[in-house]
Amino acid sequence: MTTDTATAGPGSGAANPSGVIHDIGYRTYDGERIGRLGIVRALYWHSLRSAWGLGRGSKAKIVPFLALVIMCLPAVANAFSVSRTGIRAIAYDEYMFSFQLVLVLYLAAVTPELISRDLRNRTLPLYFSRQLRRTDYPLAKVSALITAMLGLTAIPELLLYIGTIGSRHGASEVWHETRAFFPGLLLAVVYSVSFAILATLLACYTGRRAFATGAVAVFFFGTWVVSSALVHLTGFRPHYHHGPDGTGYFVKPGDPGIGPKISGLLNPANMIEGMKEWIVGRAPENSEIPYPGGFGAVNLAVLVGLCALALFLLMRRYQKASLL
């Protein structure tokens, strides 16, 4: 503004007393507009911050950071354990599976905040009355939740790695450690993506936070218990071998058959574990999950299919006129 006297030097004001009434009325905006992609990005960042309770009250931060602390505890314990005794406390690729209940708790608390809140408060019409397309909103939300989950999954893995290599010496040991770390990190990504997509889908059907929380918890926890029990029962039912002298001993069946493989498909975590076993090719007796062999490909296909279906349903949900 050329009329702005604030730009005049200090001397000129005294020599040439003048007054200006500045216009503080309505101003139009002629500046840059960030366009649809920019808006989606803005929504993504906003949701990501919300997922960690940032920019919201202190209560909103309790569960996310509590979950993060619990997730990181084993990694910290591992750092101590490795430095003192050299014994690893937890493996990279078992981390997520072992602490999946924490992931479920996080999702049960956070997904309704991200998804159901806008339904409940009926804020969606405000979004859809702007440039955003109907699909942009759920995509931004899901991406944000995935990223938020990565914080919860990848940070502990990273801590585990750092804590371990701190006690490792020599390039080859570090290299060995690093090679073990990357599958763990990849697994964290897989968990984050699939869990976030499924949780978002569950939450988008209700505006009631309580129901959404319940739905997410029941789905992940319930299917896990059932699936694990079935895997256990159908796969690790040891055969009691009656010896000729009346004594007996247990034998584990060599091939558990199709039962546990199918059972593993009932829960996302078990599905991912089965897929992992197939890719990593680890010995079955060390694992909760029986070695799936080629069936791991089915696990992968089902997981991808499930996530794709969930995304499709999610997009369809936000086309509904009843959201307005």
Binding site: L101, L105, A108, R209, F211, G214, A217, F221
Partner: peptide, 16 residues
């Protein structure tokens, strides 16, 4: 927030 509290009771208290 009874559902959240109940969930923490079931998942964290009883299950863990």
């Amino acid at each position: 927030r009874s559902v959240a509290v109940t969930l923490i009771y079931i998942l964290v208290w009883e299950s863990l």
